[in-house]
Write a protein that binds this DNA or RNA. Structure first.
Lengths: 358, 358
DNA sequence: TTGTAGGCGTTATCAG
DNA sequence: CTGATAACGCCTACAA
C-alpha cells in the first residue's frame, strides 16, 4: 500500500498518502493515538467539523465528509471514549452484574449480552456479587457513574434498592420481577406446568421442592406455582429450603429430602439437582428408581450426568441479548421501543432422572 | 440519621447536617451526582483542594481533609471516571478477552480476574472473540483507547499482533507464551509428564493426541511434550487434529481416533475429551475398557460424567487473579514488581476414564 | 497548605 | 455548511 505512487491530488479518497512529519511525530510522542485535532489538521478543517463528520454522517457536504473520513482512516483514529463521555454523559458501557459467575447458567446470559452490546458498539463491564447483597450493592454504586445502564441477572437485591438504582440508571432485570422495572423472565407458569404434568402423569403423589435462596424471586415463584398445581391435583407438596443455589447446596439437602419421603424432587436449578443426585448416589438412593429428580436451566453437564437430568430449559443467551437490547432501546440506541417486561419461552427436556412411579 | 439534633458547629465530622437547598437542587437537577465543585462549595474550599484531599490523603491539613471527606460523604460523592480518565489517561478499566465464554474453563479465570480487579477498584470489561482471530483483533482495537490493560486469555492472535498490542497497552497472556510479553502459563511439562507417567505406567504403548486449534500455543506445547516423552519411552504417539476445542470438536474426531487404534487418547481439553467419550459411547466403544481418555482443565462436569474424566487440573482462578495483579503491577497500582512470566502448578486428577491396558 | 489557571478530547451551541 | 467557543469533571503545575 504505502509504496503505491501518490495519485493526482484531486482524486478524493486517495489524499493523505503522506502524513506531515511534524504531525506524525506529535501523535507518536503523545502515545495515545490520534485525536480529532490531528485529523482536522491533516484534512484542513476545524475539529468541530471532524466531530460532526464522524458522528452524524450525511448531514454535511459529501466532499468534506469524505476528506475527514480519509484522514481519520489514515491516522487510524479511534474515539477517546472518556473524552466523549464527558460532554454527553454516555460512557458506551453497560454493566452486567451476576451473583455467581461460576454458575453455568450465567455464561449463556453473558454470551448473549456481549454479542448484543458489541453489535451496538457498547462494551460490557462485568461484576460479580458472589451471592452477597452487600457486595452487589457496593459494586453497583461504584459503577453507576461509569456505565449507561445495568443488567441485573439473578440479583439478590431488595425491590427498594433495585428501584433506587433504576431511578438513577436504566435497569433491566433477568429472572426477577419488580414493578415498573423492565425484566426478562422465563415463563415460570408454563415451565412448572410442563414439569408438573410430566411428574403427575408419571404417578407421583408426593413432591418436594428444593428451594433456592430466600432472596431469589424466581425460586419463590416456582414454588408458588408448584403449590397451585399440587393443590389442584390433590397431591402433597413440601418445600425443603432455603438452600444455596449450588452443587453443594443440593448435596447438603439430601438428608432432609430423604426424610420428606417424596417420590419426586424438583430442584430450584440444575446445579442443586446435580448435587442432590450425587449425594443420593453416595447414600445408596437410586435415581430415578426410588426418587425422581428434576431441575431448571439445562446447564452444561445436565445432559451427561448419569442419569441425565430432566430439566426445564430457557434460552439464557436470548435473555442476555434481549436485556441489553431493551437497555439500548431505553438509551435510544436500538430500534426498540418496548420498555416492558417480557416472558421467555421454556421447554421441558425429559431425560433419565425422572421415571414413572414404580 | 437525618432527624438527629444538629450538633454544635465546632465538632468536626458532624458538620453538613444540612445541605443548602440551592446546592441540593442543583445537584438533583443535574442528575449525574455530586461533583468536586459541589463538595468544594459545601466545605468552603477550592475544588482543587477537594481533589487533593480525596486523591492523596495525608498530604494536607488534617482539618481540611476531614472537612472535605465529610462533605463528600454527605453528598454521596463518586468520582466521575470519565472525567478522571481524561487528564490522567487512566480509565481504571481492564479488559479480559476470551475466545469462548461458554467454555467452563473460562469462568475460573473470570472469577479470579474480577476479584483482583474489584479489590483494586478496577472494573473488568469483557470481550469474546468466538474463536475468531479477526473478531478478537477488532474488539481489542476498539477497546484500546478505553482500557488500561489487557488480559488475553487463550488468544488466537499471532505473536506479531500480540506484540503490537503490547506496545500500546500493558498485556498479560494466559496460556500463551510470547517473548517479552508477560504470561501466566500452566506448567505444561509437569502436567504432561504426570499424565504420561500415569498412562505409561498403565501399560499403554500407543497414544493419540487430540489436538486443539492450530492457533493454540498451549495445544502445540502439549503435543511437543507428549512426543518427547513418547520417544523417550519408545512408544507410539500420533496427533489427530486440528479440532475445534469444543464438545462437538471432540465428538467429530471419533472416527479418526478409532482409525488410529491407540489404546489411550489425550485430548487438548476436557470439553473435547467429553465429546469424544460421548461419541465413543454412542459408537459402542468402551471407555476405559477399549480406550483410555484424558483431558486438561478439570472443568465443571468432568467429575460427574461417566466414566469420570481423568484430567490435568490447573488453578484457573489463580491464573485470572495473577494476570490482573501483574497488569496492576505494571500500571503501578499493586505492590507487585514482577513483570515476568510465571508457571502455574498443575495436578493430575485420576478418575475412571483411564485404566491399565487389559 | 491552599488557590489559580490551563488542559485532557469531545460535543454542542452559536455565529458567520 | 463550517468555524469558533464554551462546557463536561477532574488533575496538576505553579503561584500565593
Amino acid at each position: 500500500m504505502a509504496d503505491l505512487q501518490p495519485p493526482p491530488e484531486d482524486i478524493p479518497g486517495n489524499e493523505f498518502e503522506v502524513i506531515p512529519p511534524a504531525l506524525a511525530e506529535r501523535i507518536a510522542r503523545r502515545g495515545a493515538g490520534a485525536t480529532i485535532y490531528d485529523i482536522a489538521e491533516l484534512a484542513n478543517v476545524n475539529p468541530s467539523t471532524v466531530s460532526r463528520a464522524l458522528t452524524k454522517p450525511g448531514r454535511m457536504s459529501q466532499k468534506t465528509e469524505a476528506r475527514v473520513r480519509a484522514a481519520a482512516e489514515r491516522l487510524d483514529f479511534r474515539f477517546n471514549t472518556a473524552a466523549r463521555a464527558l460532554p454527553t454523559g454516555r460512557s458506551h458501557m453497560l454493566a452486567v452484574v451476576v451473583s455467581d459467575i461460576t454458575n453455568p447458567m450465567i455464561f449463556g446470559i453473558l454470551r448473549g449480552a456481549e454479542q448484543a452490546a458489541a453489535a451496538a458498539g457498547y462494551a460490557l463491564v462485568i461484576a460479580e456479587s458472589q451471592e452477597s447483597g452487600l457486595a452487589e450493592a457496593e459494586a453497583i454504586q461504584r459503577l453507576i457513574p461509569s456505565v449507561d445502564g445495568f443488567v441485573l441477572a439473578t440479583t439478590r437485591l431488595s425491590d427498594l434498592r433495585i428501584r433506587d438504582i433504576a431511578s438513577r440508571r436504566p435497569v433491566v432485570l433477568i429472572n426477577r420481577d419488580v414493578e415498573h422495572v423492565p425484566g426478562i423472565l422465563p415463563d415460570v407458569r408454563t415451565g412448572v406446568d410442563q414439569l408438573m404434568d410430566h411428574l403427575l402423569g408419571a404417578g407421583h403423589r408426593t413432591i418436594a421442592y428444593l428451594s433456592g435462596p430466600t432472596s431469589s424471586w424466581i425460586s419463590r415463584r416456582r414454588w408458588e406455582r408448584i403449590v397451585e398445581r399440587a393443590v389442584d391435583a390433590g397431591v402433597a407438596a413440601v418445600e425443603i429450603g432455603p438452600n444455596a443455589p449450588t452443587v453443594d447446596g443440593g448435596s447438603e439437602a439430601v438428608d432432609r429430602v430423604r426424610a420428606a419421603r417424596s417420590t419426586a424432587v424438583i430442584a430450584f436449578n440444575d446445579l442443586m439437582a446435580i448435587g442432590l443426585m450425587r449425594a443420593a448416589a453416595a447414600a445408596g438412593i437410586s435415581v430415578p428408581g426410588e426418587m425422581s429428580v428434576a431441575g431448571f436451566d439445562d446447564i452444561f453437564g445436565s445432559e451427561f450426568i448419569v442419569p441425565a437430568l430432566t430439566t426445564v430449559r430457557s434460552d439464557l443467551a436470548r435473555a442476555g441479548e434481549r436485556s441489553v437490547e431493551q437497555l439500548l432501546g431505553v438509551l435510544g440506541v436500538g430500534e426498540e421501543s418496548t420498555p416492558l417486561s417480557e416472558l421467555l419461552e421454556t421447554s421441558l427436556i425429559v431425560r433419565g432422572s425422572t421415571a414413572p412411579l414404580a
